[in-house]
């Protein structure tokens, strides 16, 4: 005997409704988008819409107290440091080269002549590193310019860590030396390689 569904429309809807509910449940994204903050996710709670809160003035992260004034300001007794606060090893120079190429070349270019891409696009041209005045600049002053900016140059404190700023200053010394050297400065065993392309190894 056939069941007569016609009188019970509700029952007739149950099966499709259950299927729909199952499908619908499969598409919920609760676990994908959990009510938590991840970096740069906005916040409805704070007025400025940021979940990352600004530091209270004077807050110091654990282990980040900058006790060594020379290392973090480039100055000692109000005067720019005339030496590097840590030994400049080959490792440090390579680090300096890497950081210089990332952050400084847009204006200063790879040799430090001041014809980087941003300058070619209209940014004010910085002085070339290869003048007597800049060759005499104490490392502490280079550190200070990176940290606080100078003239049209903005500060790079956000982008370059303090120790890296010293490494960059040291690499600038390398560039200055490389552009103002003569054959006698090259150790005899390397003179044969002059004129062949290569990088700092």
């Amino acid at each position: 005997m056939r069941t007569d569904w016609s009188g019970r429309p509700a029952a007739r809807l149950i099966v499709p409704a259950a299927l729909l509910a199952l499908f619908g449940a499969g598409c919920r994204q609760d676990m994908h988008n959990q009510p938590k903050y991840i970096p740069l996710r906005g916040s409805e709670f704070f007025d400025d819409g940021r979940s990352a809160r600004p530091l209270v003035n004077g807050a110091v992260a654990r282990g980040r107290l900058r006790e060594d004034a020379a290392l973090y300001t480039g100055k000692a007794g109000g005067r720019a440091l005339d030496a590097f606060p840590f030994p400049i090893t080959r490792e440090a120079l390579k680090r300096g080269q890497e950081r210089f190429n990332i952050y400084c070349t847009p204006c200063h270019d790879h040799l430090g002549t001041g014809l980087g891409m941003a300058v070619r696009r209209g940014f004010r041209r910085p002085p070339s590193f290869h003048t007597d005045r800049l060759r005499q600049l104490p490392p502490g002053e280079i550190f200070d310019v990176i940290t606080n900016g100078f003239g049209a140059m903005p500060n790079y404190a956000l982008q370059i860590e303090p120790r890296d700023r010293w490494a960059v200053a040291a690499y600038i010394r390398v560039l200055q030396y490389s552009q103002n050297a003569n054959v006698a400065d090259v150790p005899p065993e390397f003179r044969g390689r002059l004129g062949t392309p290569g990088d700092m190894r």
Binding site: P39, P106, A118, P154, Q159
Partner: peptide, 26 residues
């Protein structure tokens, strides 16, 4: 240059407006 924290943190980092203005001030 812009994604400054990519080597040290889980998040590559988006540049703050200050970094845009490094060049776009001029």
């Amino acid at each position: 240059y812009c994604h400054t924290s990519v080597e040290t943190s889980s998040f590559a980092g988006l540049p703050s407006t200050e970094i845009c203005m490094n060049c776009h001030s001029q």
